[in-house]
């Protein structure tokens, strides 16, 4: 990825208020693949007994990452919106560790983008969640 494209990607996430509220940062983007990192934040705890992050915050990370992967697909969509998203929660993310999602837009038709994603904490071999999603493909005007 060329330098300005990386810069555009970083500022793109800064323009999404909810992504900014979750302190998300783009680690990698291009060719239908996006990697986004979300640091641990006690404000996002879903289970006060364990300190594990709420599934809802993981959904937002997966959704953002899926949309970013779709936008970076070589077919160059003009815009996208989520049609559906399914998430399997494999285990609770370890409290204190950042969660990193990797989404891949593996197939695109004229109107629909198909995405697979996984999320992990500090242990990349043992994912915390997997997701599949479908996204709209908006044509350029």
């Amino acid at each position: 990825m060329c330098a300005d494209k990386a810069e555009i990607a970083r500022s793109f996430i800064q323009l999404i208020p909810q992504a900014r509220a979750l302190n998300m940062e783009i680690v990698e983007i291009g060719n239908g693949v996006a990697v986004i990192r979300m640091p641990y934040d006690p404000a996002l705890i879903g289970d006060p007994d364990t300190g594990v992050i709420h599934g809802g915050a993981v959904s937002t990370l997966m959704d953002t990452c899926g949309g970013a992967a779709t936008m970076s697909h070589p077919s160059n969509p003009g815009g996208t919106a989520t049609i559906s998203l399914r998430i399997d929660y494999l285990r609770g993310a370890v409290p204190g560790q950042a969660i990193t999602a990797r989404a891949e837009c593996h197939h695109v038709t004229r109107s629909v983008a198909f995405v697979r994603a996984t999320a992990h904490d500090d242990d990349p071999d043992n994912p915390v969640a997997t997701a599949t999603g479908t996204f709209t493909v908006e044509r350029r005007p």
Partner: peptide, 14 residues
């Protein structure tokens, strides 16, 4: 944000 809508539904469900 679609993630917020999903999170809202998950919070309400739990």
């Amino acid at each position: 944000h679609g993630g917020v809508t999903a999170a809202f539904l998950e919070v309400t469900a739990i």
